[in-house]
Simulated scan of single mutants.
Amino acid sequence: MNLLGLKLIANIMDWSDDGVATSEYNWLQLMASVKYDGYSDFRAGSRFIENLATWLKQFEPADRQTAYDFVKHRLVYISGAEMQRAIEAFFPETVTPFFRRLAAEKAGIQPHEVWGNREGSEAFERILRRTLFVGLSDGSRIDILRRANSSRISQEQVVPMMNIGPEKWTDLGKKIRERDPNDEKFEQVYLIDDFTASGTTFIRFKDDEWKGKLQKFNKMVGNARESLKDKFPIADNYALHIHHYVSTTQAREALLKRTEDANAAWADRTYGSISITEGTLLPAGLKLSPGTDDAMIALCEKYYDHGLFLRLIEHAGEAEQTDLKMGYANCALPLVLEHNTPNNSIPLLWAETPGGEHGPAMRPLFRRRDRHG
């Protein structure tokens, strides 16, 4: 552990009491080694302790305790190991119970009787064979999902990214027919991603048109079906399932409402039903809120550089925002994921700006890899 970094933090925080310093050192060392040092976008030679010292120093002395208390008591960090558990739990805790209920209905038995009933277990296997799993981004970690379920899901049932061309569609159809001539079409499709905070990227209605990943997938399926005709491997009126390993309550509620609206509005809808599931549902109280987090909200406003919004204005405009003080879609999350920090988290955690006419320079605690600016 970097003792120089710890002493620097003690200096910055003015921990003159040896007992306070020792207690905080122990906490910092524990959290750095167990979680925070694993953040993938720390620069070479720099880990949590060094970044925390630099981050705290940007605040005026009177504001540093508020910032430190936020990190100690409000920050939520999802580690690589925790995300892997969420991925590994997807099949046994989300897919299996749902398919068992479907199989029980087909066999005319109770769900708990499926494994002990030949007709029920065969129905379950048939439903599983007719299921396609599609990753929506790198974050879907399809490689981990596939390895965790190598004895359950075949290679031909998994597509790592959503951009599927005619050749791949044809190959998927060929493979499903090779496994069982009677299983000619996929009847269940899972779209999988790692995290959603607002649901905006997945589906939104703006400028009198539908946008987002669901609209793109629906259009892609419609075009491929029209082009490939009988060779298209997905059944008409298939069941579509949207699964995120981690979701906020805000995103879940938004997805339920927007998919309901889309179902009613889309004349070209390719799927028959749609469901929304998640591995971990973050509570509504996670986000910073007035009355509970007033001191930290004040820091978000005081140390905000509006140049951040101007740089990301095209992306932020999709959520109809006028600033980014509370993050994308004003989600105000105190959240960090091991592989990147969501832009829905408060920018004081992730933003890096030079400062100038629009506000002070912003220094990140967990630097974000930005896809939008």
Rank of each mutant, 00 (worst) to 15 (best):
V221N: 07
P166I: 04
N218Y: 06
P111W: 09
A89W: 10
V71K: 02
D183H: 04
G279V: 08
I274R: 06
G135W: 07
E187S: 06
E88T: 12
R152P: 06
K287P: 01
T249R: 14
T248H: 02
T322S: 12
V158H: 06
D230F: 05
F42Y: 15
R74N: 10
E93L: 12
L132W: 08
C300G: 03
E253A: 13
T54D: 13
K229G: 13
E122N: 14
E93C: 09
N11A: 02
E178P: 01
P111R: 10
T270Q: 15
G120I: 06
K106H: 11
L28E: 04
L335F: 05
F98S: 10
M296F: 11
I346T: 04
I234R: 11
V159Q: 13
E226P: 02
M31F: 00
R64K: 12
L349V: 04
N263E: 15
P342W: 00
T54H: 06
T96F: 09
E209Q: 14
L333E: 07
K57T: 01
G356D: 06
Y39H: 01
N343I: 05
K219F: 04
R147E: 14
D261P: 00
H112M: 11
T280N: 10
D194L: 03
L337Q: 05
P342I: 01
L255I: 12
